[in-house]
Design a protein around this nucleic acid. Structure first.
Lengths: 196, 196
DNA sequence: ATTACAGTAGAGCGATCTATCAAGAACACA
DNA sequence: TGTGTTCTTGATAGATCGCTCTACTGTAAT
């Protein structure tokens, strides 16, 4: 039976390269080389070729990344502090990775939005998954579901935009600003509910 | 002297294609075809090849897009309403363009951030230009320069993130949420200044 | 031993990529 | 009419793309 980890190595290399350089700029030969796997093995394990490799990567690492962020948010009791802390952690880890590894699907999402329907849908479903999870998290401190959902959208969007600016400028500052903005947004939502 | 508009047509086609599909997925042959120009003319007008074409596009359409957004913000007197209105307009125009044409440099920015230093710097400088202009705009209603700059960062980041989610989901809702979030953020900044 | 199958391995296909090149067309000024 | 410059044009090079294909190796069960 399948007794090797070749498949996992291919998936791992694909995840890193797609996340770092995007879909079009990543070649299968490069994935095979980086995974230290024979080229043919890619098509053995992923008969759907490059697209299947990317779709698997989007869904797998998308779900995993969402869980990671949620766990990070749960690691600090106060939600406002937690937001600042989570964005701070993202800033630190991005800088530590030399501004290469940010959101696992952001780059691909923009690339394929108007040219590859299957991959576009995969990214959309991952984003929806994130927004849903974040809505439930905000729902713990904000009563109205609509407000919680707006905050969730804002958090995902701000994170994605901050990743873009931080990577372009090679500067963690945008991510830090993003965290403080989200904190302000949550405080405003809680204050509005309290005040009326 | 240069009496044809071939150069402009090439630049226009490059702008559309880079914005829509990104840097790697856009081929020079395709640009020439779309511009209805001979292939060789690309290298006549842009000796630096694909990279020069992209860098010109980033700086030119980046500056133009920034001016466009600022003009849009100035078209409504009340700043809070103006933010909502501007994001609403972005949502409408994105939907009208079948979710193809959003930020002219966002896709390229993520693609090249870790693989093409010249283009990375070009995108970073455009973002800095936008943040600077937006800081001056917010400065008209917010006294502290630091607060104005944070709001400017937030606006650019939120816009970029909202474009990503809206394009992926083919849904203008994220952009609308983004506008309301920015309005809340500005109201909070003004209220804090007034209250203390 | 034989059969069967999972995985390894990479040569090679047609297509496409960026970039170069040389020749021709159109225009200005003598 | 000559002459030089600007611009046009597409063939072509050389590399790389995603993908297919065939042959080979190792293991496990009959």
């Amino acid at each position: 039976m399948g007794r090797s980890d070749t498949r996992a190595r291919i998936q791992g290399a694909a995840t890193v390269l797609f996340r770092r350089h995007g879909y079009s700029a990543t070649g299968l030969k490069r994935i095979a080389a980086e995974a230290d796997a024979p080229f043919g093995s890619i098509y053995h394990f992923f008969p759907g070729g490059k697209q299947q490799l990317a779709e698997d990567m989007i869904r797998t690492s998308g779900t995993e990344y969402g869980r990671m962020v949620l766990a990070l948010l749960d690691s600090v009791p106060d939600p406002v502090e937690s937001l600042v802390h989570a964005f701070e952690a993202a800033a630190d880890s991005l800088a530590a990775a030399d501004y290469a590894d940010a959101c696992p699907i952001g780059t691909v999402a923009l690339e394929v939005a108007s040219s590859n329907e299957a991959l576009r849908i995969a990214t959309a479903e991952v984003f929806e998954e994130w927004v849903g999870a974040a809505t439930r998290w905000f729902g713990r401190w904000v009563a109205e579901p609509e407000t919680a959902r707006s905050l969730a959208y804002s958090m995902v969007m701000t994170l994605e935009g901050a990743f873009m600016l931080s990577r372009a400028a090679r500067d963690p500052e945008p991510l830090r600003v993003a965290g403080r903005s989200m904190a302000t947004l949550l405080r405003a939502a809680i204050a509005r509910a309290d005040g009326e």
